[in-house]
Nucleic acid binder design. Structure first.
Lengths: 370, 370
DNA sequence: TTGAAAGCGCTAACAG
DNA sequence: CTGTTAGCGCTTTCAA
């Protein structure tokens, strides 16, 4: 009965209305679940719709209501589990609230991000969640604000932009972690990040990522408070593909001024740094200590298991989505914003540096003190 | 000049037309880049658009043209790097062709998948890429086909559905891997999968996933060709969360009939299985041999590095997206479909089983023969 | 080339 | 409650 075979044209409210012998308006009301419809009419319409296998055209609906029930998400790299998890947090919350998610990848290019935001706006998404590639180039985000469309920032802050932002505060944890390494006796502590920069890092340089700049600052401050100065050349940016990361690792670990500890700025970097260390035939933590951001499951499987900075990434995604949806629905912000705190998980990859052993011999090679 | 301040209403073609002193139709033609427009008009319109900061309403555009330049992607679990990578392949290709991607997660629930497909269709996506949670419950996919909307399957086949499918053929590689283990002397080879099933696995049971059923079949066939019968109780399904996987691992590895080798069906399972093994204080490959599907970077960092079945996941995503876009644009299928082949990467997690050592003492503990 | 006018499928006023 | 009549912003006839 309902097999329309090669019928090309979609069934519309008009068709349903005709079949149910009511006006288009009544059919639409019954179907769209708004306005006033008698029980009788509703039943006839719904039955007809069922019979005809009617499917509403959400585009037409959105055009009228102005709502698409879709939120746009812009991230740097979906392939990075950090964003994979955050995205999962977003989609889980979105689904629960009846929102759909359009995802766009930027490869951490601001140009791609500008384009992505534009496209999403053109598609009339109800709101945007953006993990800005740069904390500085934010004109396009400013414009989103001005357009009045809800916007929430994820993972990174953007200076001078008045937007709800959900980013783990890594300044404190960077400080804490660095102190931990300093107390273990490390002085040559390296930090490796993918952050793109025109020049190699030098002291006091402006970093375009709030995350990275927080981390570097935290590290420098820890040194300072320790009465020390962070040695030059140990903050390495532009750690892009696996090959370049391994190269950086080799450079960091060879020569008389080799680093005794390396901090990897994310899980993808970590993978290549550890590979690089292994390639050099060095052992962790015997020869080099190692610390990384993000607590992925695999970090517990290496020998030794890795000491990591755990970040509530999934929660961050959830919080961002919740906030955005709240904005979309015009509800007020809760009085107390949840805080997203990172945590240092001490496992086995941090030890006492070789040089320190002579004047500060530890009972065990592994460093586990406070 | 162009600061409209608190202007709420969006700029439309009508506004641009007025500003450019041409008809709405002409403005639309110039803006939409179709129809015939004189050089003069085009310039005036474009200038006016620029001046007013006009942005087309893609919804309205889509409603007329029927094309949304958007493809819908439905996967079981974005958090699983397997899909993360595949999704990356899809989005990369999509972007290059000017398509956008709407992503929906199903948690491997068919009900959620049915809903996801419906939503995407309602949103009038130009085409769909689905990684079906079940190879059996495919009515909704059948309906997509019937509706005439382009559809491509990813990662898993769906029996009896005439659809272009991009899935790595894991039957052969399963056979090969099992033979590899058999030749090393293993007889009690376990296979752990997340596949949801009402009952524990028993011989000849119908599996709802083409992937898993291929893998199990390949394994059984290898045993058969070896003149053996695969022992009962070693194919374990329903390996959901980390806890249940560790429990399964413990069960598999304890008692007189313990497995001597475990094959993990994906990277997420692998993580927990290896943890489970470590918790039992067993060593790989000394006490248990281990093999897993998917070659993630971390598998090279464990001690020993893990022997894996590498799958061209990114390529799979790319191929699926290319095929879908080709269908959408109405181009013919290429004569030769690319094949997606898995590859056994022998590293250090497969050895000779304890029992076999007595009558077949290997020179080294590690098994590396062909 | 151009412009007027008629839709796309739906929601939203406005009378009954 | 119900139906009629306008739109939403754009594309697409169809004449001019």
């Amino acid at each position: 009965m309902s097999s329309n075979g090669s019928r090309r044209r979609d069934i519309t409210v008009a068709d349903v209305a005709k079949a149910a012998q009511v006006s288009k308006a009544q059919a639409a009301r019954a179907l769209g679940n708004y306005g006033a419809v008698s029980q009788d009419v509703r039943e006839r319409v719904l039955a007809a719709a069922e019979e005809l296998d009617y499917r509403p055209n959400e585009l037409a609906r959105s055009m009228n209501t102005g709502k698409s029930h879709t939120i746009g998400v812009v991230v740097g790299d979906i392939e990075n589990p950090h964003f994979g998890l955050a995205t999962r947090g977003i989609t889980d919350v979105a689904k629960k609230s009846g929102f759909h998610v359009i995802l766009i990848n930027t490869d951490e290019e601001t140009a791609a991000e500008v384009e992505a935001v534009r496209v999403l706006l053109d598609k009339r998404v109800d709101g945007l969640i953006v993990a800005p590639a740069s904390s500085v180039e934010i004109r396009h985000l400013q414009q989103v604000r001005e357009s009045g469309r809800p916007l929430v920032l994820l993972d990174r802050k953007a200076g001078g932009l008045d937007v709800e932002t959900f980013a783990v505060d890594t300044g404190d944890i960077s400080y804490e972690s660095t102190r931990y390494l300093l107390e273990a006796g490390h002085r040559r502590i390296a930090f490796v990040s993918t952050l793109k920069a025109a020049q190699p890092y030098n002291d006091g340089m402006e970093l375009a990522s709030s995350q990275i700049s927080e981390r570097v600052d935290g590290m420098l401050k820890a040194f300072e408070d320790h009465g020390l100065r962070h040695p030059a050349g140990l903050v390495r940016l532009n750690a892009g593909d696996a090959e370049s990361i391994r190269k950086i690792t080799r450079e960091l670990l060879q020569g008389p001024d080799a680093a005794t500890a390396i901090i990897a700025s994310d899980g993808l970097i970590a993978l290549s740094v550890v590979e690089g260390i292994q390639e050099l035939g060095l052992s962790i933590p015997g020869d080099v200590s190692f610390l990384m951001y993000d607590d992925f499951a695999w970090t517990r499987l290496t020998t030794p298991p890795l000491t990591v900075i755990a970040q509530p990434v999934y929660e961050m995604g959830m919080a961002a989505a919740n906030a955005l949806i709240r904005q979309i629905e015009g509800r007020k912000a809760p009085t107390a914003a949840e805080t997203l705190k990172a945590r240092l998980v001490r496992r086995g990859s941090v030890g006492v540096p070789r040089a320190a052993e002579t004047y500060n011999p530890p009972s065990s090679h592994q460093f586990t003190a406070s």
